[in-house]
Amino acid sequence: MTVARGVWVLGEQRNGRIHPVSYELLAWGRALADDLHVYLECVMVGTGITAAAKSLIAHGADRVRCLEHSELLTFRVDPYARIVESLVREHQPEILLAAATTMGRTLMPVLAAHLHTGLTADCTGLSIDPNERLLLQTRPAIGGNVLATIKTPEHRPQMATVHPKARRPLAADPSRVGEIVVETIDESLLGSRVLRLGFEEDLTMASSLQDAELIVAGGRGLRTAKRFSDLFEIAAHLGGVVGASRCAVDLGWASHAHQVGLSGKSVSPTTYIALGISGSPNHLAGMSSAERVIAINSDADAPIFQVADVGLVADLADLLPRWLDRLRARKRRDGQGGLGG
């Protein structure tokens, strides 16, 4: 029996352009490949990727496997799964990672089922157990209140998905050397009973939350829907967007599109302001890669303070109106200043 070797990440492209999540996956994979002293390979399925493959090497890949065909431009689960499965069976990587996008969350379970191996969804931590050479996959579990570490002792590859934006890409190093392999496509694998009839573009809140540089997020500690709605005004003053904890969404204070956390979106803004959010692992999993976290909560023992750079222990019922007064006053001043030249 051959021993499975190497770390693979399943990159993504949209309309022939490499999606940035591919670079995040390379950052995850690079750390594991270095620990294992093996190659990091990036598998790209789609069209027009061979030309762009150099940027994947600059971001950490040792080898890029390009699976190109005009019929693979958009993700369809059947052909993607068959093609990746046959490549995995041929080369036997020990680890296969993908992003927890709608593509990764559809494709990876199908692959794991066919390959008869384990898959851990939405990992927030991946590391190597040096004794057993096994992938340790950590994810929030049981409603997001604890972190579970999971391994796949005997089945290969060890498979996991990670949330987009949970890790920053490595800086590009154009001098890195790697290999680009153009794989031949077995056209008999391209069929699917599911037919794509069309696509309606809709750039909603969800994407702007993930791209935002500043997020003002609220949770149950705000105590009223009215106080939560004040966050929209604060966010407007600060040039940010509004996020919400699962509690706030469950209470109907914000729509699911605003939800930050394992069961919502992962975000990686420059500044994350958490107001009245206690910080369940579910929530922390979605925002702890923010560059700076400012937390305000009345409970000094709230876990959110453990991931905050700056923490204010304060009653939001008192602090919020005062802060709004200041922001409004400043806006008036700035407005007048502007008129006066």
Binding site: A112, H116, T117, G118, L119, T120, L136, A141, N145, V146, L147, A148, T149, I150, K151, T152, P153, E154, H155, P281, L284, S288, V293, A300, P303, F305, Q306, V307, A308, D309, V310, G311, L312, V313, A314, D315, D318, L319
Partner: peptide, 25 residues
């Protein structure tokens, strides 16, 4: 019949150097 095994379950602790500021009235 499960390929995966749970190795451990922890209540997480975290990493940042927090400056905590206590505000009263």
């Amino acid at each position: 019949g499960s390929p995966t095994r749970v190795v451990k379950v922890i209540y997480p602790s975290f990493q940042r150097n927090t400056q905590l500021f206590l505000a009263n009235d």
